[in-house]
Amino acid sequence: MQHFSATDPTPRSLGFAMPAEWQPHAATWMSWPADDELWFGHLAGVREEFAELVRTIAHFEPVHLLVRDEESEADAAARLGGANVKFHRVPLDDVWMRDNGPIFVRNAGGEVALINWRFNAWGGKFDWQNDDRVPEYVAGALNVPHWDLPVVMEGGALEMNGDGVCLTTRSCLLTDTRNLGLDESKYADWLRAFLGVSKLLWLDGGLENDHTDGHIDTITRFTDEKTIVTSTEADPNDPNHAVMQKNLDDLRQMTDAHGQPFRIVELPLPANYLEGAEGRLPPTYANFYIGNGFVVVPQYGDPNDQRALEILQPLFPNREVIGLPSRQIIEGGGSFHCVTQQQPAGAIWKP
């Protein structure tokens, strides 16, 4: 297993870039929930919803599941039965694999490597030391070459279209608790060099009371190279209304890597206000996960649940769009995209 640093030849210089999520996967990586205190007493319900999510994904592609300890592994094994899941015993702080896990890159020959960014629990909000080591574990488990970088970066902060364009939010990346001194231009340099991003597009902010400071994957997603689905809030008195409207207006002015406008599709936020242990929760349908032949969409027992599925299904004509319950998972502040990380299909790179 070969390590590279920020001063070695970059992935971009070697022909690597981060593929779009809808490109073929070798597997999905996840972590099993284990701490009842972190879930505000909802762990049993969270595990029930997690099990349904893991079983659904495993029906379409292999799942690598990190488990903290013997109890977690036994619980997961009992709930998952004979699903296509491989267990890995790894020290963990939490389950948000999208943010603390590796980001995979692939070259034109179809070979795969990974990037080990730093993780600090969204600016030091929670414990992170164990979760920050997960990319190194994954690299070792796969024997895949990887770059170890000094920059804090969360996968949920980045939305890629597979053609050089990345969407992100200022409210998240420009906080001084992540990478003090990095401005929009410097972020663009890092993402160009290590993920192959040729055009970085910025929205201002995300959902109210989102502890990630407004991750893009909770509000605005690509469904193909040219199409963006973005969250909207119809109630002008709701604090999310103005932010989502500004995002919508900005997206309509943006263009792709070739100077062409995007197709913008509006996706309503859930109609009901959800309250958690620490105030308002940030439920959203945009936190779907795209895999081999499927898309899983969080559902909250909300009047807009079915409408969200009806909007998303035509955007994924060759995939089964599946609604699964996430009312318990959202108590932790995220949903399906936040707890998954795709491993692109391809042979392991042999430099």
Rank of each mutant, 00 (worst) to 15 (best):
V265A: 11
H88D: 01
N240K: 08
Q342S: 13
I103N: 13
G181Q: 03
N100A: 08
P283V: 02
Q306C: 06
P62Q: 04
E266F: 12
L142Y: 15
A286N: 09
P9G: 09
L92R: 13
E71I: 15
F288T: 02
P325A: 03
V144N: 04
I57R: 04
L53I: 07
R280D: 01
L43F: 12
S5M: 05
I348C: 13
A121I: 01
M244A: 13
Q2V: 15
V243K: 07
V54Q: 02
W117L: 00
R133I: 02
C172T: 02
A26D: 12
G109K: 13
V152F: 09
W147R: 09
I115F: 10
A277I: 11
Q343H: 14
H42C: 11
M244I: 02
V67M: 10
G164K: 08
H215R: 06
P11Q: 11
S231K: 06
N237L: 08
F40A: 14
P325C: 03
E71C: 13
T56Q: 05
G279N: 06
R327A: 08
Y273M: 06
Q129H: 15
L248A: 07
R327G: 03
A277N: 13
V152R: 05
E275A: 08
E233S: 07
E266P: 08
A77F: 09
V46M: 07
L167I: 04
E159G: 07
N304L: 05
D127Q: 14
A347R: 12
